[in-house]
Measured scan of single mutants.
Amino acid sequence: WEITFERNGKRITVRTTDHRLLELFEKLWRNGADERELERLAEEINR
Rank of each mutant, 00 (worst) to 15 (best):
Asn8Ser: 06
Glu39Val: 12
Phe5Arg: 03
Thr13Asn: 03
Gly9Pro: 00
Asn31Pro: 01
Arg30Ser: 09
Glu6Pro: 02
Thr4Tyr: 04
Glu6Leu: 09
Glu44Ala: 12
Asn46Ile: 09
Glu23Tyr: 11
Arg7Lys: 12
Glu39Ala: 09
Leu28Arg: 07
Glu35Phe: 15
Glu26Lys: 13
Ile45Gly: 02
Asn31Ile: 06
Glu43His: 10
Trp1Leu: 09
Ile45Gln: 02
Glu37Ala: 11
Glu35Ile: 15
Leu41Val: 10
Phe5Val: 15
Arg15Pro: 01
Thr16Lys: 01
Ala33His: 09
Lys10Ser: 10
Glu37Tyr: 13
Glu39Ile: 12
Glu2Met: 05
Leu21Ser: 05
Glu37Lys: 07
Glu35Asp: 14
Asp18Gln: 06
Arg30Asp: 05
Glu39Tyr: 10
His19Lys: 14
Ala33Asn: 04
Gly32Ser: 04
Arg15Ala: 06
Arg11Ile: 11
Asp34Asn: 10
Trp1His: 10
Thr13Tyr: 07
Glu23Val: 13
Asn8His: 08
Asn8Cys: 05
Leu38His: 00
Phe5Thr: 01
Glu43Lys: 08
Ala42Lys: 03
Ile45Phe: 04
Glu6Asn: 04
Trp29Ala: 03
Phe5Gln: 00
Glu26Asp: 07
Arg47Trp: 08
Phe25Trp: 04
Ile12Ala: 01
Ile3Lys: 14
Glu26His: 10
Thr17Tyr: 13
Glu26Arg: 12
Glu43Thr: 08
Phe5Cys: 06
Arg20Glu: 10
Gly9Trp: 00
Phe5Trp: 06
Ile45Cys: 04
Thr13Glu: 03
Glu26Ile: 15
Leu38Gln: 01
Ala33Cys: 11
Lys10Ala: 07
Lys27Ala: 13
Ala42Met: 10
Trp1Met: 09
Glu43Gly: 08
Asn31Leu: 09
Phe25Gln: 00
Gly32Pro: 02
Leu21His: 05
Trp1Cys: 10
Glu39Asn: 06
Arg20His: 11
Ala33Leu: 07
Arg20Lys: 13
Gly9Glu: 03
Glu26Pro: 00
Arg20Cys: 04
Glu39Leu: 13
Glu39Asp: 07
Leu21Phe: 06
Arg47Ile: 10
Glu23Pro: 02
Leu41His: 02
Thr17Val: 07
Asn31Trp: 06
Trp29Asp: 01
Ile3Met: 15
Glu35Gln: 10
Leu38Cys: 02
Asp18Lys: 04
Phe5Leu: 10
Phe5Ile: 11
Asp18Tyr: 04
Ile12Met: 06
Leu41Arg: 02
Ile12Leu: 08
Glu44Leu: 14
Glu23Asp: 13
Ala42Gly: 02
Leu21Asp: 04
Asn46His: 06
Thr16Arg: 02
Asn31Ala: 11
Arg36Val: 14
Thr13His: 05
Glu43Ala: 11
Phe5Gly: 00
Glu6Ile: 13
Lys27Glu: 10
Leu22His: 02
Leu22Pro: 00
Trp1Gln: 05
Arg47Thr: 12
Arg47Pro: 03
Asn31Thr: 11
Arg7Ile: 14
Ile12Arg: 01
Gly32Phe: 08
Thr17Trp: 11
Trp29Glu: 01
Leu22Asn: 01
Glu6Gly: 02
Asp34Phe: 15
Thr13Leu: 07
Trp1Val: 10
Asp34Val: 15
Trp29Lys: 02
Arg11Ala: 12
Leu22Thr: 02
Trp1Ile: 10
Phe25Asn: 00
Lys27Pro: 00
